[in-house]
Design a protein around this nucleic acid. Sequence first.
DNA 1: ACTGGAATTTTGATAACTCAAAACACTATA
DNA 2: TATAGTGTTTTGAGTTATCAAAATTCCAGT
Lengths: 228, 228
Amino acid sequence: MALPSSTVENYLKAIYQAQSAQDPEKRLVPMGRLAGALGVAPGTATTMVKTLAESGLVDYEPYAGVRLTPAGEKLAALVLRRHRLMELFLVKVLGMSWAEVHDEAERLEHAASDRLIDRIDAMLGRPAADPHGDPIPDSSGSMVTPEYQTLLTCPLGSPVVLTRVTDQDSAFLRFLESSGLKPGQAIRVEARDAAADHVVVRGRRERQIMIGMRAAAKLQVAPLEQTG
Amino acid sequence: MALPSSTVENYLKAIYQAQSAQDPEKRLVPMGRLAGALGVAPGTATTMVKTLAESGLVDYEPYAGVRLTPAGEKLAALVLRRHRLMELFLVKVLGMSWAEVHDEAERLEHAASDRLIDRIDAMLGRPAADPHGDPIPDSSGSMVTPEYQTLLTCPLGSPVVLTRVTDQDSAFLRFLESSGLKPGQAIRVEARDAAADHVVVRGRRERQIMIGMRAAAKLQVAPLEQTG
DNA sequence: ACTGGAATTTTGATAACTCAAAACACTATA
DNA sequence: TATAGTGTTTTGAGTTATCAAAATTCCAGT
């Protein structure tokens, strides 16, 4: 088995991410969605997926969609590992901004050797999550995906910690950065208003931030243990 | 002008390096040599070089060889810049060994953005040379190539500093490393014996090292100012 | 000047990836 | 239950990069 081309890696990664985003346990990604995620024509995705199926990396059901096999899932997790470690490295060690590392990592993830990745992993102290709070798979490809709540579901008024941002759009990331809403930040949700389609968040230095509900759903939080 | 594929970058780099290695001012790299350096069939090199010529990156003279145009030379220098900064970064920041960084940099040089490279450059303090002592072009693609002597040409007995190793073979590099012969090291040549085809070098901690003349020619040195 | 051997170029194929547009299948609803 | 639409697949073609092997060119030595 030759090492997968970066095209193959990108398809696997996209399928993995589409599967995760999907209704739990539906797990069949339609070709249109996949093609959209990769920016290719639908027919291209069909063709490529058929060859992935021949390599045993995915299960393909014509007209229904595609799903990773265990082998494909492992490979995808390792790509994600490279991507996320690289992002964290660029932020922590090279001081790049949260918003600009995504594209860089997108290219470097296909060029970095396992050796380099492991060294980066060690240097960063075997971190559990990247700058967006996305969990980093270990070198065997397994990853813990913790239970979570979002700004839409967490209890009102209690302090929580922002743990993860499930959107890579760089304009969105820049907005969060300028609002002080980075993973690790302690905040609390003061109010939700379905009619106004927003939530009110009290953040760093008691600053008040209003966020649309669509965006709020992309911010995951964990309960914060009160100290003192 | 689209950005060059990594294949194009590799051809330009190979031509650049072959030109530098060549008799000064002959400057025409034959297809055979180029194909050999890149590990492709001769016909492949011919085809590719013709398309490079159409893009104005090289001058191609059928049956004679190929030479970089100013545009090609600049691009090649920028590839070299990415490669060398990357190598130095891997050694200095990630603690990788001198011998193992070459292949890694070979892949990363095509994936790293100018932005990342500049950041690395700044972090390393705008270094003049990579771990092998090869000069690093600046971001405009110009590079100073200092005059040099080698272990074969430097004065006998006087202290010199090892400045550059013009061979990337990793077995050779490991030998040098184990002998303490890294760029920056102060040494002196005690004797040369043409019949025995070796030179005798006195190195770190008065250790004596014998090196074949072929290898000795690959070690460049500069006079060392005596202090005290 | 001729010619034989080496280097180079040409030719014909292949592999991986892509697109546009024609053909097709599924399913929701009328 | 027929069908209109949407989404999917197929088809035919193009791009980039490669190889092996045939054809060609060059030059060195008679």
